[in-house]
Design a protein around this nucleic acid. Structure first.
Lengths: 354, 354
DNA sequence: ATGAAAGCGCTAACAG
DNA sequence: CTGTTAGCGCTTTCAT
């Protein structure tokens, strides 16, 4: 069954397509009676204007592309929810492009990002938001940056919690180094001195920033960092488990507290620690990063740093909207401050007098 | 800066647009030398064909719309990942439409579903996949069903784990009643007789099915169900907490085991139980439903029923692809069998001799 | 207040 | 192997 078009409506209403278009878009006054007639015809035939044709001429699609590495990591849905909440009111819909880092080598992940970048551009999205992936790399190749720059020339690109060298991008980020300092300070204030850092990847900028914050807090407190207590290996629960096992298997003194690269790692770490017979936080304090919804539901409830994912998403959506409509000048960088959330997984060290 | 079009390429290559189109789509042989020339021009100008124009004429967009109620519930990202994995290879991209049930009354959720249904149709998606929302309702209004039927006439609709009255839809579902029976049987085999059911909503079909499975397993074992131990109130961690508190505050005998409507509720229930001084599973066995990734990472690890989310997504993507390409006849209903995953949150009841 | 006509950027006959 | 031409369904001047 052939879809009905403006022509069908126009013919049946004895008007021109222009008039139909006018009532569709409220773009010019139309006599009440003809408007009525057209409206009822639209209703009768369940007419739905073809958005492709409209977008083709109007040069706007109301579509925003999101490129992210792994939708099953709870951090991303949280940001997405923020994006959606905000952008919905402005009439945008989202293309979700998951590059599927979870079971891929990173090379194919970046290749997939390139693909999606191209596809989204071809589909004429009004803007692209990137989270994770190549924009989290400490050093991305010239080519990887160039691709995004090229896209950025044609349509607005907003980077969430990441960056790319070269030309400046619009970004909204959480001050991660500062967050890591807050987290570490909290541990230090509790009396800890034997503090480890766990998780993430050395080649990723978020990890480097978090580590940097960790280091400066330690330094400021005059505590030496034991480099063999700074171990990386991923952002997943399994990574946390493995890293904790690794840490526990080392000879000699054990840390009394651990700063984790994110909540998932912290959860894995707690898991392994408990399995090894340790009590959290009595024997070992563990602190996360992100504040995903599950953090509050762990036993013990996870002390962590809120990255305010929802606001991150909302802010990005807002900026994107500004960029698309070009209403005001938008500052290149928007920085949100994280917030320490003290719950149950941290306490004074065991040797400490209470 | 004006985007470059096939015309620009054609002019500069001294060929017609048709030839450019031919090399773009490999739709007819082109002399190697002219192909080369065109290719290099494409590369030089970073030409990207406008997918809107192409789709307008080809009547296919490679876009699939997904309508779901809450992306922050980990069940959905898991299904999404499955969809994406499968559909990516067939060249589809996804529109994510989150109706945001998390902080809305249900009325505005359904309104939002209607909106998205319309938007997706207008954007000419090749198909729509629905999960949750109105298709989970025990009784949906005539109107809600009609809307989807109307859409289903114009383009393929696939329902995941739900249904709608009236005209038949293509569906892929998990046998939830059977799953609830497996879960309950597991508890019964452990020696439990005082078993409660917790979570979900009475007006939702998934809850009703799960309850039905629970009831039939109990009946088959000759155990009477205490109706005041069957309590509903949502699918979230907070719902689980509240319901557990409610259960614990009741006078008289307490259940020794609880079947939860999903993992999130189970997590909340464990949380409250532990807070109340109970040990899981020593004092109380708790069993979930879904097997979200976090289930394995709880302490204790959650015994649950795998809904095989990934496969659910993959299967749906496959079916959708068949429907879109009309390659083979696709059976209306595809049923996946769930799988009991025994972990740590269930054990024999306390009074039971070991 | 309305209509005629010219595209938006591309593909697909049809002709050569 | 290549060019010409007619649309896809809609919006938008420019007339009237």
């Amino acid at each position: 069954m052939k879809p009905v078009t403006v022509y069908d409506i126009a013919r049946e209403a004895n008007v021109s397509v222009a008039t139909v278009s006018r009532v569709l878009n409220n773009t010019a006054p139309v006599k009440a009676s003809t408007r009525e007639k057209i409206m009822s015809l639209i209703d009768k035939h369940q007419f739905q204007p073809n958005a492709l044709a409209r977008s083709l001429i109007k040069k706007e699609t109301g579509m925003i592309g999101i490129i992210l590495p792994d939708i099953t990591n709870p951090f991303f849905p949280e940001v997405l929810a923020g994006l959606e909440q905000e952008a919905r009111n402005n009439g945008y819909t989202f293309f979700l492009c998951d590059t599927g880092s979870y079971n891929q080598d990173s090379k194919s992940q970046y290749k997939r990002e390139s693909q999606y970048l191209r596809i989204l551009a071809e589909k004429q999205v009004d803007g692209i938001i990137m989270i994770g992936g190549r924009i989290d790399l400490q050093k991305s190749t010239r080519e990887m940056a160039k691709e995004v720059q090229e896209v950025n020339k044609r349509l607005p690109v907003v980077l969430i919690n990441g960056n790319l060298p070269g030309e400046k991008f619009h970004r909204v980020i959480i001050d991660e180094a500062r967050g890591a300092m807050q987290v570490t300070d909290h541990l230090i204030e509790l009396g800890h001195t034997d503090i480890a850092f766990m998780g993430g990847y050395n080649q990723m900028s978020n990890t480097v920033q978090r580590m940097a914050g960790f280091h400066s807090a330690m330094e400021r407190a005059g505590i030496a960092v034991r480099e063999d207590w700074v171990i990386t290996g991923g952002f997943t629960i399994n990574a946390g488990k493995a890293l904790m096992n690794e840490l526990l298997s080392k000879d000699g003194r054990k840390p009394t507290a651990i700063v984790c690269a994110n909540d998932l790692v912290a959860i894995g770490a707690i898991k392994s620690a408990v399995k090894a017979g340790l009590s959290v936080p009595r024997d070992l304090s563990i602190i996360g990063f992100d504040d995903i919804p599950l953090a509050e539901s762990m036993i013990p409830e996870l002390t962590t740093l809120s990255l305010r994912c929802l606001e991150l998403g909302r802010t990005a959506a807002n900026i994107m909207h500004q960029l698309i409509t070009k209403t005001n000048h938008v500052s290149e960088l928007t920085t949100l401050q994280p917030k320490l959330v003290i719950r149950e997984s941290t306490a004074p060290p065991p040797s400490h007098s209470m």
